[in-house]
C-alpha cells in the first residue's frame, strides 16, 4: 500500500475567476514512504494545483487523494489534521513569517495541532537542532534575520509539525549558491532524521538530477511521465517537446556523441560525467 495515492484527480477552476489558474486532469499516481520525488513542468502546467491537493488546500473536482488508504476528504472537518501530516512549504516561504520572535513563529504550526507546554517546546527545540536554527535567534524577531536565515526559519515552521510527507515549491528560488546548498542540506537533514517522503517542485533539471529518485513530469495539467530520474532523463526528445530539457551535462554528452566521441547517454550529473571521461582518457593512455 502506497503512503499517498492520487486517484483520477481532476481540478477545474470556474471560468469566471479573474485569475489564471492551471487546472489538472485525470492524474493518478502512488507515492511511497521515504521517496524523493521531483515535479517538473513549465509554468502553468498544473504543478502548484497538484501539490495543493496533496495537503487538502484544494478539493478535487473529481477523484480522490488517499493518505494511508483513507480519503483525506472523508471528513472535511478533519482536513487540518491532513495538513500537519502533509507539510507544504510555499515558494518564498519567508513572506509568511509574522510572529514577534523566531520561536513563536516556529511554534505556530504545532500549536495549531493542539500541542502546548513541554511537548510544544520540545518540538520547536528539536527541529531547530535538526536543521540548524541557532539558539540565539529564537528570541529575535524573524524580520531581523538575513534572507537565507529567514527561509530556514520559515521551513522550520512547517517541519515543526513533523509531517510524514513534505512538499517544497521551488525551495531555492531567489537564493545564491550558498543559500541553495543550505536549503538542500536542510531537506536532507530532515529526511535523515524522520524518514519522511520529500516532494520538490523545481525548474532546475540539474538540481533534480542530484536530488530526486523519481520524476513526475506534468504538461498542460496531464501526467506526462512518472518514472525514475534516469528513465525520465533518457527521454530528452519527449521533454523538449513540452518545453523542458535534460540537465546541461547530459546535453554536453549528446553534443560529444554528435562530434563522434563514443560516450554513454545516461550521464546526468557532473560527478558521473567526470568519472566517465576519466575512464575514457585512461583507456586511451593505456
Amino acid at each position: 500500500m502506497a503512503l499517498l495515492q492520487v486517484k483520477n484527480l481532476t481540478h477545474s477552476y470556474g471560468g469566471s475567476s479573474p485569475f489564471v489558474h492551471d487546472a489538472v486532469s485525470n492524474i493518478s499516481l502512488d507515492i511511497e514512504k521515504g521517496e524523493i520525488i521531483g515535479i517538473i513542468g513549465h509554468t502553468g502546467s498544473g504543478k502548484s494545483t497538484l501539490v495543493q491537493h496533496l495537503n487538502g488546500l484544494l478539493k478535487p473536482t473529481e477523484g480522490q487523494i488517499l493518505l494511508e488508504d483513507k480519503d483525506i476528504w472523508e471528513n472535511p472537518k478533519e482536513i487540518r489534521k491532513v495538513r500537519s501530516k502533509v507539510g507544504l512549504v510555499f515558494q518564498y516561504p519567508e513572506y509568511q513569517l509574522f510572529e514577534e520572535t523566531v520561536y513563536a513563529d516556529i511554534a505556530f504550526g504545532p500549536k495549531n495541532m493542539g500541542l502546548s507546554g513541554n511537548e510544544l517546546d520540545k518540538r520547536v527545540r528539536d527541529i531547530c537542532r535538526i536543521i540548524g536554527v541557532k539558539d540565539e535567534y529564537l528570541n529575535k524577531s524573524p524580520f531581523d534575520l538575513s534572507g537565507g536565515e529567514k527561509r530556514r526559519v520559515a521551513i522550520a515552521g512547517v517541519m515543526a509539525m513533523y509531517p510524514q510527507i513534505i512538499i517544497f515549491d521551488e525551495p531555492t528560488a531567489g537564493l545564491d549558491p550558498a543559500g541553495r546548498e543550505t536549503v538542500i542540506k536542510i531537506i536532507n537533514d530532515y529526511r535523515r532524521e524522520t524518514g519522511a517522503t520529500v516532494i520538490v517542485v523545481s525548474h532546475s533539471m540539474e538540481d533534480m538530477a542530484m536530488l530526486a529518485d523519481k520524476l513526475l513530469v506534468l504538461n498542460d495539467g496531464k501526467l506526462e511521465m512518472f518514472d525514475s530520474t534516469e528513465k525520465v532523463f533518457s527521454n530528452g526528445d519527449r521533454l523538449r517537446k513540452i518545453g523542458l530539457n535534460v540537465p546541461i551535462v547530459t546535453r554536453v554528452f549528446a553534443q560529444l556523441r554528435n562530434l563522434g566521441v563514443d560516450v554513454p547517454e545516461d550521464v546526468f550529473t557532473v560527478e558521473k560525467a567526470v568519472e566517465v571521461l576519466k575512464k575514457k582518457a585512461g583507456e586511451k593512455n593505456a
Binding site: N55, R80, F90, P93, F108, G109
Partner: peptide, 16 residues
C-alpha cells in the same frame, strides 16, 4: 492574489 497565497501558506501550517 498575495492575500490568497499567504492564507494558503498559513492554512498549510494548520491555521484555522
Amino acid at each position: 492574489e498575495e492575500t490568497e497565497k499567504i492564507m494558503n501558506a498559513q492554512k498549510a501550517r494548520g491555521a484555522d
